[in-house]
Amino acid sequence: MDWLNTIIRTFFDFGAMAEVLPQLLAVGLLNTLIISIAATIIGLVLGMIVAVMGISPSRWLRIPARIYTDLFRGLPAILTILLIGQGFARFSQSIFGPSPYPLGIIALSLIASAYIGEIFRAGIQSVDKGQGEACRALGMSYAKSMALVVVPQGIRRVLPALVNQFIAIVKDSSLVYFLGLLVSERELFRVGQDAAVLSGNLSPLVLAGIFYLVITVPLTHLVNYFDNRFRTGRRRPAAPSSGLKEVKELDAASPLITGSNT
């Protein structure tokens, strides 16, 4: 059973795992969550702007939104992160100080916003055209009808896709290590990798991987739950009923029925 021992020593060295656990929790998990959540929030805001621009009646808003989306969706994440993280390092230094951490978040946000923008756009466009028309027919402006009626409906139906996007961001957050983070800024992957170098086996990385799964797997199932609920709707099965009941109720209640036109 030599190979079994090798596997255990390489991947499941519990001693090495126990040693890195406090760091993974206090530094790695914390930073992964900070980076992912910050990038998601910024990505949601930018994504909504891109989406609304993308469906605007004005081509001067539509075209820039299209280019932005194509650009950040079309480039590999690692390339975008490096270009922004290093390219704007000096600029960022004057605002955030020497750490590349904020730039990493911004780069991830830009990538995320391109995807989120497409998700929002698809969601908003899937809302029945009659909704906007009903708003306009009541005298609401385009902006008001979007903000009060159409966009909220669009958002609700893309919640599952947004959770998926958050999962993608959590995984992509591992890429910011390329920018060279301070010890206290390392996220899960980097903490695991550093520990793996020290322990001489991959167990710390396996543990880091488990942490990623602990974040992402429950979310995946949450998506499925959402998905099912939206597909089947919340309507409870109803007992058979009669539309005639409503006719009676109408006759009794409606004060408008005047009777003289029979």
């Binding site: 029945d128 009659g130 909704q131 028309e133 009903a134 708003c135 306009r136 027919a137 009541l138 005298g139 609401m140 402006s141 009060l148 009626v149 909220p152 409906q153 609700r156």
Partner: peptide, 29 residues
């Protein structure tokens, strides 16, 4: 927008706002 506020329209498929109650549907505009 000013014109439409003076003209009511009722559609074949109602076009009520599904995430609003009946009262909110009427109150919104």
């Amino acid at each position: 927008d000013l014109l439409r506020a003076r003209i009511g329209m009722v559609f074949q498929h109602f076009n009520l706002f599904p995430d609003h109650t009946a009262l909110e549907n009427v109150a919104l505009a």
